[in-house]
């Protein structure tokens, strides 16, 4: 029997390639964290700093944060009860260990299951990824703080945090 090896091989290679690409798209890549789309969350969490993606912290961290907005990294960020409930629901539903899981598996590496970190910039994975950034760059007048993702990751507001 005359087997058409050439077209078969090409088809297989094509399929394998698509599968890899599809898997990456499905996983969102390592550098994609879907941005906040809820308008209330965006407004309340995005006025003083970038509205950080909920998939950057586990649900237990968001719960801990929302429980003490009066002392929010030194600022009083308290909101009324209805707004707080809406924000909490959004954050915990899309957190790194709930709805946002497929974007953040690597980001949660090294975090003890019983700890609820509040600073994204103190997650082991974050620290490792930024180890080559020199101190003077953090202090640059256009950067100011590690919370200012957009200063270097120009696509951060759209959810893209690839190497710059």
């Amino acid at each position: 029997m005359n087997i058409p090896y050439r077209p078969l091989t090409l088809t297989l290679v094509g399929l394998a390639f698509s599968a890899i690409v599809l898997q990456r798209v499905e996983a969102g890549g390592d550098d994609y964290f879907p941005p906040v789309i809820d308008p209330v969350v965006k407004e309340e969490c995005g006025s003083c700093h970038l509205a950080f993606a909920p998939s950057m912290l586990p649900a237990r961290s968001w719960k801990r944060m929302m429980a003490d907005l009066k002392n929010h990294f030194g600022d009083d960020a308290s909101v009324d009860a209805a707004t707080a409930a809406r924000i909490s629901a959004y954050l915990t539903t899309n957190a790194a260990d709930t709805g946002g899981k497929r974007y953040s598996s690597k980001l949660l590496r090294g975090i003890a299951p019983n700890s609820a970190p509040l600073r994204i910039t103190e997650l082991p994975r974050w620290v490792d990824k930024h180890r080559e950034v020199p101190n003077w760059e953090w202090k640059h007048k256009d950067v100011r703080s590690k919370a200012n993702c957009v200063a270097c990751h120009t696509g951060a507001e759209q959810g893209f945090y690839e190497d710059d």
Binding site: C48, H49, D142, R144, S145, N148, A151
Partner: peptide, 17 residues
């Protein structure tokens, strides 16, 4: 401190936004 010297220009928060 955050809103800048001119009200007609953009300001900047302490976190850089």
């Amino acid at each position: 401190s955050c809103h800048g010297d001119s009200p007609r220009s953009a300001g900047r928060t302490l976190t850089g936004k």
